[in-house]
Computed example of a mutant assay.
Amino acid sequence: MTLPIITYPNKQLKVRSSEVIQFDGLLHQFLDDMFDTMMSSNGIGLAAIQVANPIRVLILCIPDEEGNQGKENLLEIINPSIHNPKGNTLYQEGCLSVPGFYEDVERYESLTLHYQNRHGEPCTLEATELLAIAIQHEIDHLDGKLFIEKLTYNRRKKFEKEYKKAQKEKK
């Protein structure tokens, strides 16, 4: 089942998500619904807060070399924490909650991620490149932050102007 994605400037996106303690059938169904929602929206990542559920859950499905996003490449990340971040890289990011806007954002180049899977088992992942960037982007959501908040003052003003213009054109 696909879930509605909440979009900027919805204040729910500012909520800091709570840790998951129940790893049950409800969580598993929610993870499956998140996957359906992300795929139907052509996303590569989705945080639970983006579908109005303030829990520390995110999913990622980075496309393979052919651009396919098979469920076998799906990462279900619960209660994540970043360790050993290294380097800096600039990447043009977009967001399902800020549709139609893309901006260069500086992120760590590589990191180690500690998290739990859908069954509550502890996992560790070494991430670089797009995967590391996507993890940081989605964890920001869990902390109530959007990628546009990382922009410089001038780029943020440009975003606000473009956003207001896009809203007027929709009416």
Rank of each mutant, 00 (worst) to 15 (best):
T2G: 12
T2E: 15
T2R: 14
P4S: 10
P4A: 11
I5E: 11
I5D: 09
Y8M: 02
P9W: 04
N10Y: 06
K14V: 07
V15N: 13
R16I: 09
S18H: 15
E19H: 13
F23D: 08
L27T: 00
L27G: 00
H28R: 15
H28M: 13
Q29R: 14
L31Y: 14
D33N: 12
D33T: 03
M34P: 05
M34A: 04
T37L: 01
T37K: 02
M39G: 07
M39Q: 13
S40R: 07
N42I: 06
N42C: 04
N42R: 12
G43I: 00
G43K: 00
I44R: 05
L46V: 07
A48N: 01
A48L: 06
I49Q: 01
I49H: 00
I49M: 07
V51K: 03
A52N: 14
N53R: 15
V57A: 13
L58H: 05
L60C: 11
C61A: 12
E66D: 15
E66L: 12
N68Y: 01
N68I: 05
G70K: 12
G70P: 11
N73S: 13
L74E: 13
L75A: 04
I78D: 07
S81C: 13
S81I: 10
I82C: 06
I82K: 00
H83V: 14
N84H: 15
P85C: 11
K86W: 08
G87C: 11
G87Y: 08
N88L: 15
N88I: 15
T89P: 11
T89Y: 06
T89H: 09
L90N: 14
Y91Q: 12
Q92L: 10
G94Q: 01
G94Y: 01
L96N: 05
P99T: 07
P99I: 05
G100Y: 08
G100I: 02
G100W: 05
G100T: 05
F101R: 03
Y102W: 07
Y102S: 01
E103V: 07
D104C: 10
E106H: 12
L111P: 00
L111H: 08
L113P: 02
Q116D: 04
N117Y: 05
N117H: 07
H119Y: 14
G120D: 08
P122N: 10
E126M: 06
A127Y: 02
T128R: 12
L131W: 08
L131G: 04
A132V: 03
A132P: 03
I133F: 00
I133E: 10
I133A: 08
Q136N: 13
E138F: 02
I139H: 09
D140Y: 01
G144C: 05
E149S: 07
E149P: 05
L151W: 07
L151D: 03
L151S: 05
L151M: 09
T152W: 09
Y153D: 15
Y153K: 15
N154T: 14
R156D: 03
K158N: 13
E160Y: 03
A166G: 13
Q167M: 10
K168G: 12
K168D: 14
E169C: 11
K171E: 15
K171I: 11
